[in-house]
C-alpha cells in the first residue's frame, strides 16, 4: 500500500524536483543580467523529464561554443540532462546573452507549472484521504 502511494506520487515528485532546478537556473540568469560574458543557461525540460523518469542518469555529452565553460562535467548537469546555452537573439556588446524578457517569461511560466504540480500532488493526497476516511 505505502509503496503504491510512493509510486503514484513519483511522477509529480520528479516534476517538482526538475521544476525547482530549472527555477534556480533561470534565477541565475536573471541575477547575472549585468555580468559581462555571462551566457544564459537552460535545460530541455521534456527531454530531462523523460530521462529522469526512465532512470537515465547517464551524464550526456554537452555540445557548446565555449570550451572552458563546458569542461566541468558534474556541475553543469541537472538530473542527468545537459545544461545548454540559450540561443542569442539580440547579442549585447559585453558578451552577455541574458534577454530579460525571455527570462522573466520563462520564470513566470516555470513558477506557474510548479504550482500546478504542487496542486496535483495535493489532490492525489486528498484522494488517498478520501479513500481512507470514506
Amino acid at each position: 500500500m505505502v509503496s503504491k502511494i510512493d509510486s503514484a506520487l513519483q511522477f509529480n515528485r520528479t516534476v517538482l524536483n526538475l521544476r525547482s532546478a530549472r527555477q534556480e537556473l533561470i534565477a541565475s540568469n536573471i541575477a547575472n543580467v549585468d555580468t559581462p560574458n555571462y551566457k544564459a543557461k537552460d535545460i530541455d525540460f521534456a527531454k530531462t523529464l523523460q530521462g529522469a523518469m526512465s532512470g537515465n542518469t547517464v551524464k550526456l555529452q554537452m555540445a557548446g561554443t565555449v570550451p572552458h565553460h563546458l569542461s566541468s562535467g558534474t556541475g553543469e548537469n541537472v538530473m542527468g540532462a545537459p545544461v545548454m546555452f540559450r540561443n542569442v537573439v539580440q547579442p549585447s556588446a559585453d558578451g552577455n546573452t541574458v534577454d530579460m524578457d525571455v527570462e522573466r517569461a520563462q520564470f513566470a511560466d516555470n513558477a506557474l507549472r510548479y504550482e500546478a504540480s504542487v496542486k496535483f500532488v495535493d489532490n492525489q493526497i486528498k484522494n488517498v484521504f478520501t479513500a481512507l476516511q470514506g
Binding site: A21, E24, S28, A31, N32, K41, G75, E76, V83
Partner: peptide, 13 residues
Amino acid sequence: FSTTPMGDGGGAG
C-alpha cells in the same frame, strides 16, 4: 561584476 558558482545545481550568483 563576475559570476560565482552557487550550490551544486549549476546555479550562478
